[in-house]
Computed example of a mutant assay.
Amino acid sequence: MLQYELPVQVQEITSLAKNNVLKGQTDLIVLRHLACQLRLTLLTIEDTSEAVFPLRYQLTERQSCLHRILFYRPEQLLKEETLSFVGFVSGRHVSIDAELVSELFQADQQMLAKLIHIPGLLAYSSLELRPGRWYNLVVMQDFEVKADLKRVDMHQHAAYQLGPRTYDWIRIHSGIFPGGLAKNAPQLIKTRHYAFTHTVKNFQMHEVVY
């Protein structure tokens, strides 16, 4: 899930009973770790002349945390120029059923395969820090790529149909990497926090611009 723009009624986050903080700087620590792992994995890649993209890697980190990495255009990640990113942090609903988890996984896999057709998309990284708590990092050339992402049909289905049934809340951070991944000094531009109301078709949202 990469972006949310849901056409429903919006309420203020101050009315939330739980998780009513943005945690931008805390999340940034994890996103910086994801960027570091992207860079380290990138440096292990040798000849890609006959490679099939996206290049897929799977790491097992501390406490058996699963970390997935996909490279769409790795050569562009080596440049020391400013890159854009979106960081997606989510908390799954405690009563989510196995069928919905499977449906979300399948939609996610189909969407990631289609992203190869978006020229400005460079890499995708996903880490389950603990059960039900996912951190996702999407690295792009610039923020114009987000418009292309939102037009992907499986992305729309995952974001608008499956997301509200799957998550209690999500935080979406937009920012930049000045100097690229080599510098690994991400800066936040804005954060959007969404909390879903499962009893009605509604959500609560709050945005902060840094």
Rank of each mutant, 00 (worst) to 15 (best):
G87E: 01
V101M: 15
S64Q: 13
R151N: 07
L122S: 01
F196P: 11
S102V: 11
Y167C: 05
V8Q: 10
Q3M: 15
V21C: 04
Q9L: 05
I176D: 07
L162T: 06
L115M: 08
Q161S: 02
I96N: 00
I29P: 01
V209H: 10
E46K: 11
T41R: 11
E80N: 08
F196G: 07
A35Q: 15
Q141R: 11
Q37W: 08
L149I: 13
Y57F: 08
S125L: 04
Q3R: 12
K146D: 09
N184R: 14
I189T: 10
E144Q: 10
L188R: 05
K201A: 07
Q141Y: 02
L38I: 06
E80P: 12
T199R: 07
E75F: 10
G91C: 03
R151M: 08
L40H: 05
E61W: 04
L127Q: 06
T14E: 14
I13L: 14
A35F: 14
Y210K: 00
T44V: 06
A107K: 07
E50H: 13
E5H: 05
V200L: 15
E46G: 02
S90A: 15
G120F: 02
I118D: 02
I170G: 01
F71M: 06
H157D: 01
S15A: 08
R133Q: 09
K146T: 13
F85M: 08
D168H: 03
V208T: 14
T82V: 09
L31H: 13
E12G: 09
G175A: 07
M1S: 04
N136H: 13
L59A: 04
V86E: 04
Q37H: 13
Q204D: 09
A185C: 11
L43V: 00
V139Y: 01
S102M: 09
R171A: 02
A195Q: 02
Y124T: 00
D97G: 04
F105D: 14
A185E: 15
E144S: 10
S126Q: 08
A195M: 01
Q76K: 14
E75R: 08
R73L: 09
R56M: 03
C36I: 07
V138M: 05
R151Q: 15
F88G: 00
A107I: 03
T82C: 10
H206V: 00
D153T: 14
T60P: 00
Q141N: 07
D27H: 11
A98D: 12
D27G: 15
A17H: 04
T82Q: 12
Q37G: 05
Q110W: 12
I96P: 01
L66Q: 15
Y57T: 00
A123N: 03
E75G: 05
R39G: 01
I116F: 04
